[in-house]
Design a protein around this nucleic acid. Sequence first.
RNA 1: CGGGGUGUAGCGCAGUCCGGCUAGCGCAUCUGCUUUGGGAGCAGAGGGUCGUAGGUUCGAAUCCUGCCACCCCGACCA
Length: 491
Amino acid sequence: MAKDLPKRSENYSEWYNQIVTKADLAEHSSVRGCMVIKPYGYAIWEKMQAALDKMFKDTGHVNAYFPLFVPKSFLEKEEGHAEGFAKECAVVTHYRLKVDPDHKGKLIVDKDAKLEEELIVRPTSEAIIWNTYKGWIQSYRDLPILINQWANIVRWEMRTRLFLRTTEFLWQEGHTAHATREEAVVETEKMLDVYADFAERFMALPVLKGVKTPNERFAGALETYCIEALMQDGKALQAGTSHFLGQNFAKAFDVKFSSKEGKLDYVWATSWGVSTRLMGALVMAHSDDEGLVLPPMLAPIQVVIIPIYKKEEELAMISEKVLQIKKELEAKGISVKFDNSDNRSPGWKFAEYEFKGVPVRIALGPRDMQNGTVEVVRRDTREKMVLQQTDLVNKVEHLLENIQSNLYQKAISFREQNTISVNTYDEFKQAIEKGGFVYAHWDGTPETEEKIKEETKATIRCIPMDAKNENGKCIFSGKPSERRVVFAQAY
RNA sequence: CGGGGUGUAGCGCAGUCCGGCUAGCGCAUCUGCUUUGGGAGCAGAGGGUCGUAGGUUCGAAUCCUGCCACCCCGACCA
């Protein structure tokens, strides 16, 4: 497998496509722009879901589910929102098919079953949710509402790529309602922190936290916060967003509450989401020319054990030892696969699990049985070690932790090496050409942002939360600027 | 949505220009034997609407037209 894999340096996008498909994460379906997430890929997504879901619940949120369909009139209510999403909506106009009288065995749309009002397949759920919240909120005592939903959504993109941009994708969307502006802003920032924490602790992916420029803001939001990650080809990837929606949706859907003081006011809102795009980020952050590399915290199989044997009796003896090791590892919460299939050679298995990114491989053969050892190989560095069987479980446990932090450190230093501050437009163009995050002064106008994008394909990824005040001149217009913003070419 | 490319067995491909017998090769699969510490060997077997719909022809994987999907480059995208 790995021998056919293009090198990252030679053909990055082909490298990505092949890892996704050949490591059995996902494949193209026969539906345009839509993917099938295969069991191995879905297992990773489930681990992401489990971790995020716990984090949401630990911060006071509960799960619920809202409809797939949004009546067109709901989507229209918030003007910016409507305009932003109009171009990429799938529309349901009929509710029935019938057998074509002219072509037996064919189905046609039944013209008599036209919907009074078109239904939009949700591109996001603000509209249907705020329509619902109207019925739930009368008083400040009904607030806050802190709801998350796990769902699929549809955005009719022109060009798709597995996980990174697909027509249908899976995500979670949090939708909260608050009595005060301050509380909603705190919520928006809190969830951004949750995302950043998740990316760094579980995905081993360092992220920049920041706010989007008005150009890049969510349709209908007052402020969009984001986490931005740097991929190995030097392009940025927006890995999650958290929106402060102000009172826009409350006004659009007429959601008011009476305050403690007895005054009527509109409710304050947030929404926040991450999607299966994180799978793409995970692949592009750590994997190498030998295939997928998974951080132990998200690996469906953390340890694979491969027996090496000639005779059945040897396998029996090895199996006994392996099952004991497996049990001990599992008691520590480590997921283990013992691959004793007899239709593959050990070498084949080595290559296979390496390609699939399994963090730790243990091989056990007759020699080891004699010496009381095992061969252990870590996927991140491909370092091979011979370890004593005694205390193996603790060693493996530490090794997994070590791999997790090593991946994170590697990603951090990659980002450091590919981050630069520039002061002139020439330097800027050079830096963007090279790839990576580029810190530069910007005059704050959408026009400048737009022109830089036209000329260099770079966009402002975010205005970092921790940006220091620093007087400078916009690299494009020369006008004064008070802080640097982060530019990059992006996915 | 525009330009370019691709579509033949589960996967990767040859054959298409210049139409012709039973559509081939590697990997994978199945059976048997030998193997097993980095993608094993030998022998045998099975597997095909040649993307799809139509057309030309005695005859189409091959020529013509439409359509579909995927890849690359643009445009588009919070």
